[in-house]
Design a protein around this nucleic acid. Structure first.
Lengths: 345, 345
DNA sequence: AAAAACTGCGCAAACGTTTACAGCTGATTT
DNA sequence: AAATCAGCTGTAAACGTTTGCGCAGTTTTT
């Protein structure tokens, strides 16, 4: 089952000229006469010739493709980010190869090595929650492979980073809850070591302090699997419900956790927002239709994808080694809906 | 910004032997003495050698990668299907390259050509709604590139197809509505020329007839954009609401259409399921949490991805040209929730 | 009229790998 | 002592493409 493509050789043979002439004619080199060019181009079209990018990659040591590693694409945030990535990449003539780490460190390492050996020209990474050691990134980066981190980033590599203002996002969300009359606000997060988690927790605590509440560590629950396992979320919510005094609001620090909370609360017939306020990160466009409509922190996923890709391509195409790396911080949007509003205004 | 990798040449130079010996040693050829092998393997590990798949692709005319073209990955059905695809592909040593057609014929053609020139060993396709002409598939297929269609398929190519029993899915769903007391059931679909749309409409009509209702073409509304544009869905729902006598239930034939209907009905404060029953295709795991919880037809997306990939790899790896192609039909699942049940049981 | 410059094209090497074939040892068989 | 053989390793070509160099033939300059 071989798939035979038309090559430059076929054109050369057809026309009785050398492959180098064909190559040059197709790249419109000044060394080739207009007549020959016309002949070659006509013949290429007739035979439906397409350059073989594999041969090109081998020769030029670049593939005009960029690798993307995210934890999972079946997640609104990441699929939207990927749309942003593709929109820029395609317009610049780059192909995008997507892989999923499924939040596993091992899988992330495997993916990374595959992409690197596949000669991607650069990497767009959102770190897996299972990752604490950054050596696999460092190794590739020090060997000269351009890397841009987005969303889940690390300070351990000197490179571009595209993030949202995580601190502000939860700071504002927490203020919103407090101003709405909630007095004891719990928080569920996934991987505590991730930068995004730490910043989000910090914003939450800062808002509490500002309003005169003492942050209470026992109100912060961790779901290692990030909501992939329903039981884990259920356990966390149950713990919250059993606390005395019982918290009156929950903030979910990731998409799956936020909707996971709602699922548990619905199942237990806890009234949201009356008995328990709820808000959290989510980029799903169904949150508006939920029961109750969910107050969410929405990240500019598409835009983050666009910016990351632009930065990456800038590094790839820059003549001299890039030295001054930037950190781009975008704003989140707090979309207030019923789930976080105790009293009808 | 070049990324220099260790090659077989480096090992050869380091050890003062030829590249062919290194190559053979690494592939554990019987021609190489155990001592040399040990030396080479040790050296390869020390230098962190990784075979260059690009060079391999060029040589072997295969890339151990498969291309996937779907309309969009930010769609639960497709992202779940992709997870199925990846699970099989990775276990068999294949890489997956995903591209999105965004329901555009032109984009589909571009993607396809890119993937083909990129020497993918095979293609997994779900046809874009903008596609009516199958020549681009036929061209590649006749040149020997293995293709498997899933979900949205065509009869115009003789190859494997993996689908759900679309007829039965809407047949059962419609029966469910009729049995629940709904008397005038409308239907919203996207691209009428797609096989899935036609089969689903046929199932819907068959159920109506069986129950003594005459199918009424004016009850079938088309949204060309498939729900990507909210206005389009709004217009369709408005038309349905204005009909006399007014229909009392709607079936959405795609994920975005189903949730789009709910969005419009909620906005108009139409009570679901009392004033208007609603059900439809969806693979989102949030449908259960919607207001009201949505009755859905769920497709075995992950499994479809798995099966398609398995079939594709079978063709790719088969020694002799495959001639007898199969059509695998899987069952959908009707998950009954409140949105389609007028009276509380 | 000779030298220089230009035009248009082909040769061959390179990218990293595999593999058919040939070649070189030393040992065993005649 | 010659012939055969086994065991191991090297040479070179191939995959498709680009590109530095060189070589004709023509035109321009001296």
């Amino acid at each position: 089952m071989k798939f035979e493509a038309v090559t430059i050789k076929d054109i050369a043979k057809e026309l009785g000229i050398s492959t180098s002439t064909v190559s040059r004619a197709l790249r419109d080199s000044y060394e080739i006469s207009p007549e020959t060019k016309k002949l070659v181009i006509e013949c290429a079209e007739r035979l439906d010739y397409r350059p073989n990018p594999i041969a090109l990659s081998l020769k030029e040591k670049r593939s005009r493709s960029i690798g993307v590693v995210v934890c999972e694409i079946a997640n609104s945030f990441f699929s939207q980010a990927i749309n942003g990535i593709e929109s820029i990449a395609y317009s610049k003539g780059y192909n995008v190869i997507i892989s999923q780490s499924n939040e596993s460190f091992e899988r992330e390492v495997t993916d990374l090595n595959y992409l690197a050996s596949r000669s991607v020209d650069g990497l767009l990474i959102s770190i897996s929650s299972g990752t604490t050691n950054m050596e696999h990134f460092q190794k590739l980066h020090s060997r000269g492979l351009p890397i841009v981190f987005f969303d889940r980033v690390t300070e351990e590599l000197n490179t571009h980073r595209v993030v949202v203002d995580n601190f502000k996002s939860t700071y504002e969300a927490t203020l919103h809850l407090i101003n709405g009359g909630y007095k004891r606000i719990a928080c569920i997060l996934n991987a505590p070591h991730l930068s995004i988690a730490q910043e989000r927790i910090a914003g939450y605590k800062a808002a509490l302090k500002e309003k005169g509440f003492e942050p209470d560590e026992s109100l912060i629950k961790t779901c290692q699997q990030g909501g992939a396992l329903h039981q884990e979320v259920e356990k966390a919510v149950n713990e919250i419900l059993k606390m005395k005094p019982r918290p009156d609001a929950i903030i979910g620090l990731s998409d799956k956790l936020t909707t996971g909370c709602l699922r548990v609360l619905q199942a237990k017939k806890i009234k949201v927002p009356e008995e328990m306020g709820l808000l959290g990160f989510s980029n799903s466009d169904l949150t508006e239709l939920l029961d109750p409509p969910l107050t969410i922190i929405r990240q500019p996923a598409f835009e983050m994808g666009e910016i990351s890709t632009q930065l990456l391509i800038d590094i790839i195409e820059s003549k001299r080694p890039t030295r001054d790396y930037t950190k781009r911080t975008l704003e989140t949007e707090l979309i207030v809906r019923r789930s976080s509003q105790k009293k009808v205004k």
